[in-house]
Amino acid sequence: MTKTAKVTEFRSVADMTIGESAVISSVGDDCLDIHCHCLRLMELGFTPGQEVSVVAKSPFKDPLAVSVRGTIIALRKTEAECIKISTDGIRN
């Protein structure tokens, strides 16, 4: 299921490819934008430790459709960048 991807320190949901799964490591850390919607992202279900996967992308590559907690939420790339991921923690 999961495609292996290069794990770098600053990868976010915006960098994920279609079909890729990952675990959220943090939301909104080192976010410089004061109007950032990080709290709303967390309220939507994007909390650290949650597994997410990118199920589709718009033909313009932005927004992305991200599966989380049993639903699919479309996010713009700028919003997806706030959600940092790590690929090592996937539970099986």
Partner: peptide, 26 residues
């Protein structure tokens, strides 16, 4: 399936492969 209880509706995910396809979607 990995975390079936947290997997979105499977039929919808199949349909999205068409409806959000770069060519068919458009």
């Amino acid at each position: 399936f990995r975390s079936l209880s947290r997997t979105p509706d499977l039929n919808s995910m199949k349909l999205d492969k068409v409806f959000l396809h770069p060519i068919w979607g458009i």
